[in-house]
């Protein structure tokens, strides 16, 4: 197999991985933003020292920051890789005497290394989504339980006030 064919193979693989990375990044970012939106009606800015609300406030604060892991750096890295491949392809075509095997090896190692780290990042992103889903459930359930309890106490105190 000649260098140009191998290079084409690398370009196809890199393009496919880049699409997967972009897609995963968008899905992850959208879901985290959606969970953050769902949490907006849980207002814990002022807990009034209530032990139940205080217990979920750190998680809520973390949630409202809206920060999440991203894969966009990998998309950029793969984009740079594709440009380098195109340039290298031109070099190989214009200079037929240049074998380019070592350069091809470097390209393959770069793509393999980037793909490995991307895979690990996607795994961490999946775990982060799972953790955030859990956290959403915990914050909402606790918040509703605490608010119900507060209503009971308020009603009781209201009934005890002299008319």
């Amino acid at each position: 197999m000649d260098v140009a064919s191998s290079l084409n193979g690398l370009i196809i693989v890199a393009s496919a991985i880049s699409v997967i990375a972009q897609y995963s990044d968008t899905i992850h970012r959208t879901e985290v933003a959606s969970m953050k939106d769902q949490m907006r009606d849980v207002d814990l800015k002022n807990t009034n020292g209530d032990a139940g609300l205080v217990s979920i406030k750190p998680d809520w604060d973390e949630f409202m920051k809206g920060e999440c892991l991203r894969a966009n750096r990998f998309v950029e890295a793969l984009f740079v890789f594709l440009i380098a491949c195109i340039v290298f392809h031109a070099v190989v075509v214009f200079f037929p005497d240049y074998s380019g095997k070592w350069a091809l090896l470097c390209f393959a190692i770069y793509l393999g290394w980037t793909s490995l780290w991307l895979g690990l990042r996607l795994r961490c992103m999946a775990k982060e989504r799972e953790d955030k889903r859990s956290s959403t459930k915990q914050i909402r359930a606790t918040y509703e339980a605490v608010m119900s309890s507060i209503k009971s106490h308020d009603r009781h105190h209201h009934e005890q006030e002299p008319s």
Binding site: A51, G52, S55, I56, Q138, A141, T142, A145, V146, S149, S152, H153, H156
Partner: peptide
């Protein structure tokens, strides 16, 4: 297995019981 949640709910339980 969720200590954090049970801790919060225990507080609510005790508050409710006292009330």
């Amino acid at each position: 297995n969720n200590k954090e949640m049970v801790k919060t709910l225990s507080i609510l339980y005790v508050q409710g019981k006292n009330l």
